[in-house]
Design a protein around this nucleic acid. Structure first.
Lengths: 230, 230
DNA sequence: TACGACGACCTTACGTCGTAAGAATCGCTG
DNA sequence: CAGCGATTCTTACGACGTAAGGTCGTCGTA
């Protein structure tokens, strides 16, 4: 009767904060599908229903972990403090976005969650407000800044859903062999890439480089519009 | 005893095709969350377990409806048959993408499903192969075409996840009023947009126009790279 | 015509999920 | 120590995906 069946000698009390931190940990380790109220309670040495004293329901947990990640992003990008006047807007925006991307790469489940529930969260709004501020410093009109946010889309937060590249790191080029003549251009492209860079078939292609290519393409385009309008 | 309790006098036999069509219908009407094996069976006047004779499991249903939509996209875009030689590549790609987008607007659940499971499906591969083909006709190297597909990302299929604009059509600008001084740039932008186009606050902003802005920004950027490389 | 095999569908049941309702326990103040 | 609010636990329900096995109707063959 004396000792607890559980390992801990003292019981750390639950709290909304502890619940959300544990939820992020679970999602980081096992994907968003591993995040279950019961497992979450287990992780904290409690019972499922005990969580409901600190969180209204699972939806609030999901909103909560989206907010945790958004906060993490803002902490990182706000620490950059980059010069953004005139032509410097571009590198400021660029570095800010790439820094946000690094945070999201640590939480692979986060893009999907942010996308569906956090669009209007204070932290995400703040992030976009600052981004728009950098563009204003660079001479953007509100109209162009508005277009810019839309053009960047999810790239503004550092991710873009990759239609290829399942993300597991192991490209499946052998699946394509079956189609052969049906996909002449894709296969031509693949074989050329494989020829130029034999290693690349493993990772299929370099996510980071491709992300930066697309980002720069958009930023350069915006810069031209900015110059033209001023 | 004579008549069936159900309305139908004769029982239409199930089939994989009928199951998938009903699944698309359910998702179109109630969102992907409304797609349940039991509800799907109901919709077909059958019992849940009967579906498993025609489909291995729910995952296969999801893959299946993704494929149905991908087929619908290919049917539409293949019917366009646009000239694509030289400088015409751009309008060909543009119109193809906008046509694909129209299909996806009819199935709001489809982007999320395509994104997570259909990347390597034959229909999606075929779609991208043709798109790459148009760029090749325009003089793209495989390398530039490869970059182009990544830069377009989900835009190549006609969607881009909008971080703002929840999609319900009713913009929530009143939520922002509370933050006031915390979001100076976003609020400045909003008030200017509201001033220039009083109607736009209702729809928050024009999805279609913004999509095309981003698309053109990327296509123009690619065109410049193409000219420079030739 | 009888029969057995097989394809198509159904019944029952299990484990997991989110969570409603209320009981038990803890920590404090008087 | 009594009592009371804050916190946690127990029990239970309905919905979900689906495993295992049963029940038909139909059809080829004897």
């Amino acid at each position: 009767m004396a000792a607890d069946a559980e390992a801990g000698p003292v019981r750390v009390p639950l709290s909304r904060d502890r619940v959300l931190r544990a939820a992020v940990r679970l999602a980081d380790e096992g994907g968003i599908g591993a995040l279950t109220m019961r497992r979450l309670a287990d992780e904290l040495g409690a019972e499922a229903m005990s969580l409901y004293y600190h969180v209204a329901n699972k939806d609030e947990v999901l909103d909560g972990i989206a907010d945790v990640v958004a906060r993490e992003i803002n902490e990182v990008v706000d620490a950059l403090d980059l010069p953004s006047a005139g032509a410097q807007w571009k590198s400021a925006v660029r570095r800010r976005i790439l820094a946000a991307r690094e945070v999201l790469l640590r939480h692979p489940w986060a893009p999907a969650v942010l996308e569906t529930r956090a669009a209007m969260s204070p932290e995400i709004l703040r992030y976009h407000d600052r981004l728009l501020g950098l563009m204003r410093d660079g001479g953007f009109s509100y109209d162009l800044g508005h277009h810019a946010l839309h053009a960047l889309g999810s790239r503004a937060l550092g991710f873009s859903q990759e239609l290829f590249d399942p993300g597991d790191g192991s490209g499946p080029p052998e699946e394509l062999a079956g189609y052969a003549d049906r996909l002449p251009h894709l296969l031509g492209m693949l074989s050329e890439i494989a020829h130029d860079d034999p290693d690349s078939t493993l990772g299929w292609c370099d996510d980071q480089a491709e992300f930066e290519f697309g980002l720069d393409l958009i930023l350069d385009g915006l810069d031209r519009l900015r110059e033209r309008s001023s």
